[in-house]
Design a protein around this nucleic acid. Structure first.
Lengths: 147, 147
DNA sequence: AAGCGAATGAGAACCATTCTCATTCCAAAT
DNA sequence: ATTTGGAATGAGAATGGTTCTCATTCGCTT
């Protein structure tokens, strides 16, 4: 399993390879995301870093990290941006969203099933003349706490 | 295959069963979405209806249709809301987004593969103690025109 | 130690979306 | 036909997440 230091080092290398600095704010955001179990909004992160990063800087930090592909953005159902470490840092995974409480959490689909999903994705691409480079599976349902 | 009139009638029934009227603006938006091959933004729809519906009314129309579950909203990668007819009107389907041109189109995954996807979704739910009620598969890649 | 491009922070600006409210429409009852 | 009350409409203001501006500060590199 990937350790926190590996993530930080990998992210730092990525930033430096794109001539961007590995600054305290960037490091703090990466560490915070690394400790989260699902995608976080800018507001979530502002709380998590306890005001250590002003909003304008936080947003700028997020766009730098997104442009350098250290993190990925996916808007939630309301259209609010949520961020996660990029898959090359976390490993490929999917999301489960509870329709009761709205919480989204990561799911690493077991290898046997994931292989089938990937196969289906490329098979569908083949049938529709579309070169598939990635896929994302979102599950909606009710989490154990809400049930 | 579902005909346009079926869609309109079904949508009308749904609206009326929720004590909402089947007004010209609502009908026009439904017809426009029925004639689209992928999710449309409010701005797209404003163009498509050629100014026949002012923005404030268009947005209100969209929220009524969303609340009555005639349409579904999914924000695109930029967080801008895009709308489609709900799956009970169109049939279950997924999306393919071209990473070159950004276009998103609908894909009806062939029945054999779709059944497998559904099985995997519930199997994953079982393993993670999550009651799956729906799923969505998004394919990223390059469309035939961009390749 | 100096120079210089990058990063920061405060605040203004943006813009998709929602809200307000006065007006108009429609359906049902008279 | 007419009235009536709730629903829908449209114009414009307000909201709020996000981005931009710009003056200041930081941190490499020489």
């Amino acid at each position: 399993m990937r350790q926190r230091n590996d993530t930080l080092t990998a992210a730092r290398n990525r930033l430096e390879s794109k001539q961007a600095r590995f600054t305290p704010a960037r490091r703090l955001v990466i560490e915070t995301l690394d400790g989260s179990s699902g995608p976080q909004s800018a507001a979530d992160l502002a709380v998590a870093v306890a005001g250590a990063i002003p909003m304008s800087s936080l947003y700028r930090t997020l766009s730098v990290l997104e442009e350098t592909e250290v993190i990925e953005r996916f808007p939630d159902q309301a259209g609010i941006a949520r961020y996660e470490l990029a898959e090359w840092l976390t490993g490929h995974h999917h999301h489960m969203t509870c329709i009761e409480c709205g919480a989204t959490s990561d799911v690493a689909v077991p290898g046997d099933l994931e292989a089938t999903v990937a196969d289906i994705a490329s098979e569908v691409g083949r049938r529709f003349d579309f070169t598939v480079t990635g896929h994302r599976l979102d599950l909606q349902g009710v989490c154990s706490q809400c049930r």
